[in-house]
Design a binder for these strands. Structure first.
Length: 317
DNA sequence: TATTACGTCGTG
DNA sequence: CACGACGTAATA
């Protein structure tokens, strides 16, 4: 699944939390999404309506209240299926990454692997099933790659430099899909800050992971920690519930800056020595994998979900 | 089967 | 420690 922040604000400029960047909304970060608590959301709305009286004028008080009071996942408890047609929504601008959602030792098959973009592999087949066309005139251009080649560039920086074409012509307001690759949401109105978890079309039957499946995976892990009364700070094996689990390769977290980088730098030792080194680009090496096994981020991830004010986890399920 | 990249080990 | 080489798990 993917986290998609829907920045939709009827008849008014976007709220402060999501500045308008129609050319490329960029990556807001899972952490940014998840830590958009109800309180922050309320504050965002309040500030917005307070500071932009002109924009807020058309909004009656009842509408404002109703809008702020809208839960983050308004339809989630009605059905396990995604209530909005965002199946091919893109967030990272690449195929879904095999990220560590369920824990470092909890292997899930069927999740698509990342499609690393190597600037030296121009002839390599690039899947077109993602929502953002990865054509030569898109963000895979040598220019974009070169721009991202700077060493201490964050993933977000890298994404922001990518050439995401506007989803609507300049001057128009995007009322439908906010990201360039997101199809219009039709008549469905979602409050700003909504996090939509979607599945992706990744080939026929290639993924057995559904939106609800993944959501429940996260929910169950978090809930288990909560119900067991543990601090969720145990070892990965403990998190997995089996200390005797055979040692497996850890997977990249998918959310740290290096993980969010899309391209190999091409100049680091790992890139230059790829044939024999078998190592990922130094600037794409997951921060979590650099650490010794045992101190993992998914602890914080699930902790955030579990203890988030406003019950985001509840809505996510 | 080919590719990617994690884990480990030897070396300096 | 960093680095390179290698085995090999995971995936396309």
């Amino acid at each position: 699944f993917r986290f998609v922040v829907v920045d939709e604000h009827l008849g008014s400029p976007p709220p402060p939390l999501f500045p308008p960047q129609d050319h490329c909304r960029g990556w807001l970060g899972i952490s940014a999404c998840l830590f958009l608590t109800q309180m922050e959301r309320y504050r965002s709305f309040a500030t917005f309506y307070k500071n932009s009286t002109a924009a807020a004028a058309p909004f009656p008080q009842t509408a404002k209240i109703a809008r702020i009071a809208t839960p983050l996942f308004p339809s989630a408890r009605l059905s396990a299926m995604p209530p909005w047609p965002c199946d091919n929504a893109m967030l990272w601008g690449r195929k879904p990454a095999t990220v560590n959602v369920n824990g470092p030792h909890t292997h899930r098959t069927g999740m698509s692997r990342a499609e690393p973009v190597n600037v030296h592999m121009s002839g390599k087949h690039i899947p077109q099933d993602s929502a953002l066309p990865m054509g030569a005139d898109n963000f895979l251009s040598p220019l974009a790659a070169e721009q991202c080649r700077g060493l201490p560039v964050t993933g977000a920086d890298c994404m922001n430099r990518l050439k995401c074409p506007p989803s609507v012509p300049p001057g128009e307001v995007d009322r439908g899909g906010t990201f360039g690759g997101i199809p219009p949401l039709g008549g469905l109105s979602l409050p700003p800050g909504v996090i939509v978890m979607t599945t992706l079309h990744s080939g026929a039957g290639s993924s057995g992971v559904t939106m609800s499946d993944s959501a429940f995976q996260i929910a169950n892990v978090a809930a288990d920690c909560q119900h067991s009364g543990s601090s969720c700070s145990g070892s990965p094996a403990a998190l997995n519930g089996n200390a005797n689990t055979a040692k497996r390769k850890r997977k990249r977290c998918g959310v740290c800056a290096p993980c969010r980088r899309l391209i190999n730098c091409g100049v680091c030792s790992s890139c230059r020595n790829r044939k024999t080194g078998h190592q990922i680009c130094k600037f794409r090496k997951c921060e979590e994998l650099k650490k010794k096994p045992g101190s993992t981020m998914e602890v914080g991830f699930t902790h955030a979900l579990t203890h988030m004010p406003g019950g985001l986890l509840k809505w996510a399920v």
